[in-house]
Design a protein around this nucleic acid. Structure first.
Lengths: 204, 204
DNA sequence: TTGCGCCTGGACCGAACGGTCCATATGCTT
DNA sequence: AAGCATATGGACCGTTCGGTCCAGGCGCAA
């Protein structure tokens, strides 16, 4: 049955995102999903870690599609990133418990003995950075600078999720949305490109 | 004995930073520190959570002092933040396993039932943001913008630590150092304030 | 209908978890 | 030297952990 596997991936993914790997027990995954141990170990013979890896990779794919869709909808990269992060903030505002960076907790917990999980997280972060990088390169940024900006965007969003969690409030994400837009509108320090700075600004 | 308490705080703090709360067992804290259960529960009758809270608060104080020292040593806030983040990158480069945001993992894991821990994390993040905010306000930034920039700085550093972990490399922090400096040198979007570089006094 | 896959329910397991308890040091006060 | 609070070593406890196992349920092909 496909729906059982899907249920496991979604449940495990949501719990991993919110709580991390060690705080998420197999029993919790089962009780939340309403399934039984036999099903889990049938679909994921490798147990908890195999399920976690599959759930992370699944959510990584979804995250990339989400980002690509948003970045593709707006031409200017500064506006596009701002809109994307505002959308994440809206999501946090509706569902306060959803204030979680998708992979940070699991990444930080994946120590020795969980190499597969670590690889999955690396894959996720690499893909996400690549989405931003592609958008920036397509908007005439130099490749090295695009990579640098993509890392900052990814890092700031992740960190903002953490701040949203401690604040119980979406404003850190909104602050990051605004400031990333400021950063992205600035011509590179080398000054090669003429100021496309534009009078756009002034939205709060 | 004070050294026993100190040993527990340092050991627990380091493990919590690297692995998070649930991945860090009481047995691990004891074996790494070379102490015994009796000592731990004597100094921290509240057990694992009380020790974790104390360790987090302890490290929060140290983090604030570290940040204040670095920000106080350089007048211009952009240069100061850049130097601070470069210093963190150097630390990561030497000690690859030290690539951990100090409080992110624990923050994300602190769900229902660990409210004290969550409060400690909130306190830590609030204090760290306040350090940056104070520096920016002292450098003639408007308060609202200073708060926004402080949140972005804090978030970007945290996220960069996560990226350093997955990359096994300090370059995300170096990229963030560079880009934060770019952002901080940029006048606010409204264009009103021309942030004249601060009086070089080592305030804070 | 019978047989034969895949899938699920759920009892069961050893190990590890956090926590309790107390006998015994240790060192300070008198 | 005696007495006492503080601190430590370590056995022990109940619970929960992730994981195994297998008896049946189900759907489909002959």
């Amino acid at each position: 049955m496909i729906t059982t596997r899907r249920m496991l991936l979604d449940t495990a993914g949501a719990l991993l995102e919110r709580q991390g790997y060690h705080a998420t027990g197999v029993n919790q995954i089962l009780s939340v999903s309403g399934l039984q141990r036999g099903s889990l170990y049938h679909h994921f013979p490798g147990g908890k870690e195999e399920l976690a890896v599959a759930a992370i990779l699944d959510r990584a794919r979804r995250s990339e599609r989400f980002i690509e869709r948003h970045l593709g909808a707006v031409g200017d990269p500064a506006d596009a990133v701002q809109a994307l992060v505002e959308a994440l903030a809206d999501r946090v505002a509706h569902d306060a418990d959803g204030a979680s960076p998708p992979f940070a907790a699991v990444t930080l917990e994946a120590g020795p003995g969980l190499e597969r999980l670590r690889d999955a997280c690396r894959h996720a972060y690499t893909g996400i950075r690549a989405c931003f990088e592609a958008k920036l390169v397509a908007s005439a940024h130099e490749p090295a600078r695009a990579a640098s900006l993509a890392a900052v965007i990814t890092a700031a969003i992740d960190g903002a999720f953490v701040l949203c969690r401690v604040d119980g409030d979406a404003s850190p994400l909104r602050q990051v949305a605004k400031e990333l837009a400021v950063l992205l509108r600035r011509p590179p320090p080398g000054g090669a490109t003429a100021a496309r700075a534009a009078p756009v600004g002034t939205d709060v």
